[in-house]
């Protein structure tokens, strides 16, 4: 027994920090289903490269790991369901990563959905804000805000169903939540003129007002698990859920998406940008690793190929919504020329 543990200790001590031959990818759980498909296709292509290893760490966590330094112990690529922030670029620069290649791969819609057995929702972003924000304008008259006390959807807008507001959605750590708050609630906020005017004056208070979700139990955080939300919706026809379009597409037999601002969430409306609650998906590559870790350029080429993200690419089967051809062409060109990110 002693010999075994001695051997193990020695093994641990003598292992060299070996050079990697597998691409390491971290980042967003929203991009994960797409990146994994690309990785699998890439690995199966018999080009002599190993299948990349992809960890689902969330956009923020991924960028933090990505920017922590250079060398084989750090990831080569990070996925993000939002654009990289200025602060993250400077964190990268501090750790010696000056060249980052940005890739936009497509869109992901966020849907507000309920059970097929429940009422149909035809809702505006303003309704969503008034129903879900912690603070809303008091009545119509003054420019003051009160604590949100609406109980039913009808309290918010008389054309909506007379059922209790009960919304299952992602927790604050989720990128889906960030995007929903920004696009739906923020968008709804801006339809109220005085709040919109207020944004110019004091952006941080505006954010606090528009981006804060109520905490009185009407909005129920369900963990970062969209399948769980769908199960809740099936068992409770009066509940409403917030999740990614790809989950709606897989479960059309049990849930339906709400019409938001007059637009039905479909593949076409999200691709054309008519459906407003949608966001762009990205991945970022560390240029310094190209050349030392085999296959990065080939992986980039596979991901950016028309075969993957084009109008009929294979990622569409997994729920990715393609970008217009011109935008695609720009990012494909930047990817080929290894152009540094423009911020």
């Amino acid at each position: 027994m002693n010999k075994i543990s001695l051997f193990l200790v020695l093994l641990v001590m003598t292992l060299p920090a070996e050079a990697r031959d597998t691409i390491r990818i971290v980042g967003s759980s929203t991009v994960y289903p797409f990146a994994t498909v690309v990785a699998e296709t890439f690995g199966r292509a018999n080009n002599g490269f190993k299948t990349p290893i992809i960890e689902s760490t969330g956009s923020g966590g991924g960028l933090k790991l990505f920017c922590s330094g250079k060398g084989p112990s750090t990831p080569d690529v990070t996925n993000a369901s939002r654009r990289i922030k200025k602060s993250e670029i400077s964190l990268c620069a501090e750790n010696g990563i000056s060249d980052i290649i940005e890739h936009k791969i497509g869109f992901d819609g966020i849907v507000v959905a309920n059970s097929n057995n429940g009422p149909s929702f035809n809702i505006s972003r303003k309704d969503l804000y008034l129903a879900l924000a912690a603070k809303v304008p008091c009545g119509m008259k003054d420019e003051v805000t009160c604590v949100n006390e609406s109980v039913t959807w009808r309290d918010v807008n008389s054309s909506l169903p007379d059922i209790k507001i009960e919304v299952y959605g992602p927790p604050p750590t989720s990128g889906t939540r960030d995007a929903f708050v920004e696009l739906a609630l923020g968008g709804g906020c801006n339809t109220i003129p005085w709040i919109k005017a207020f944004k110019k004056k004091d952006k941080s208070s505006w954010k606090k007002l528009c981006y804060t979700i109520r905490e009185d139990g009407r909005y129920i955080e369900t963990g970062e698990n969209d399948n769980l939300i769908i199960q809740k919706l099936v068992s409770n026809p009066n509940a409403v859920g917030i999740f990614g379009f790809s989950f709606l597409e897989q479960n059309t037999d049990s849930v339906k998406g709400a019409v938001v601002d007059g637009i039905n969430p479909t593949f076409e409306t999200i691709a054309s940008g008519e459906y407003k609650v949608s966001r762009s998906l990205f991945f970022y590559v560390k240029k310094d690793h190209i050349g030392s870790i085999p296959g990065i350029e080939e992986y980039m080429a596979e991901f950016m190929s028309e075969n993957a993200i084009g109008d009929e690419g294979y990622l569409l089967d997994n729920g990715l919504i393609p970008m217009p051809k011109t935008i695609r062409a720009k990012f494909q060109k930047d990817s080929k020329s290894l152009a540094n990110i423009q911020y």
Partner: peptide, 16 residues
């Protein structure tokens, strides 16, 4: 880092 998408079957304890 073991919560990851890994397609290759590990051949030994040093593989991902």
């Amino acid at each position: 880092g073991m919560v990851a998408f890994i397609v290759d079957i590990p051949q030994g304890p040093l593989d991902a």
